[in-house]
């Protein structure tokens, strides 16, 4: 059994490093030109845009997920398990099909905009093909990843803290902000990571919900492999994406460890 374990471990190690870290292997002979090309202002714009979209997506997901997970974890009684299962089920519907449905609903002829136009919103208002449209797609795609860790944190939370907050004459909102939010910070942090990572690498939302002016770094990478056929450049962009994400992860881990140390004290 241990032989089997070591063999499978080696296989996984070889494969996971092969697929995540050894990216440039096939191109070691090349110059640094591809890395230098990353300094191109066009790339910088796309990278900054991707960062902005991913940060915004995480923030919006957080704002949505707090009341939702609060209601499910603390106030749904015996429907709790059914509700949390309902949160997870759409995740198993095909991501592309979901995004496709979402983009039809938010399209110019879709039900949402038809209603808004009838209510007097000017015809020049669009969702699909705009930056906010891309963010709307990302939020729809990944909100579940925020609800689940927050829900877990709320469930573990000591609810007598909330009662204490109320007994000390905190209003509902104040108690929520001063007691519930700090007590569930670890869940929120985990959720932010879980949303930020896939949002940063996504290219489907930008494709379906945005136009050529809203492309993200994922679209650039995909183009290098399928349109431009410039693989080394695509690899370099992937490394750049990975570097950004690793910096983010390092920040998260440091923060989580600090929280843990504080909790022990």
């Amino acid at each position: 059994m241990s032989v089997f374990f070591i063999a499978s471990l080696l296989l996984v190690a070889a494969l996971s490093f092969g697929t995540t870290n050894d990216l440039g292997n096939a191109y070691f002979g090349h110059s640094l030109a591809n890395i230098e090309a990353l300094a191109d202002p066009a790339y910088r714009t796309v990278l900054l845009r991707s960062l902005a979209y991913a940060v915004l997506t995480s923030a919006i997901c957080l704002v949505i997920a707090y009341p939702v997970s609060y209601a499910i974890a603390l106030h749904s009684g015996r429907y709790k398990n059914a509700l949390i299962a309902m949160v997870v089920v759409p995740f198993f519907a095909n991501y592309l099909v979901r995004m496709y449905g979402w983009s039809t609903i938010l399209s110019d002829q879709g039900p949402v905009l038809s209603l808004l136009y009838r209510l007097g919103v000017p015809r020049s208002f669009h969702i699909v093909n705009t930056g906010p449209g891309v963010v709307a797609g990302l939020v729809y795609g990944f909100a579940v990843f925020m609800v689940l860790p927050l829900y877990a944190a709320m469930e573990r939370m000591d609810t007598s803290l909330i009662e204490a907050g109320r007994d000390l004459y905190g209003g509902p909102l104040r108690t929520f902000l001063k007691v519930t939010v700090p007590a569930t910070r670890q869940g929120a942090l985990a959720g932010i990571v879980l949303v930020f990572l896939p949002a940063m690498g996504d290219f489907v939302s930008a494709q379906l919900m945005g136009g050529p002016n809203q492309i993200m770094i994922g679209n650039l990478i995909q183009e290098q492999f399928y349109g431009g056929q410039n693989w080394p450049q695509g690899d370099a962009l992937t490394m750049l994406l990975m570097a950004v994400l690793l910096i983010g992860m390092a920040g998260y881990l440091r923060r989580a460890r600090k929280d843990e140390a504080e909790a022990v004290r």
């Binding site: 471990l9 697929t19 990572l197 290219f203 695509g234 994400l245």
Partner: peptide, 27 residues
Amino acid sequence: YAAFIMLVPLITPEIVTGVGSLTLFKG
């Protein structure tokens, strides 16, 4: 160490895994 390596694919965005696999297979 093995437990850590196990988690790497879970926190890597799929596009990175995809590009990595493609590069490796082609390589």
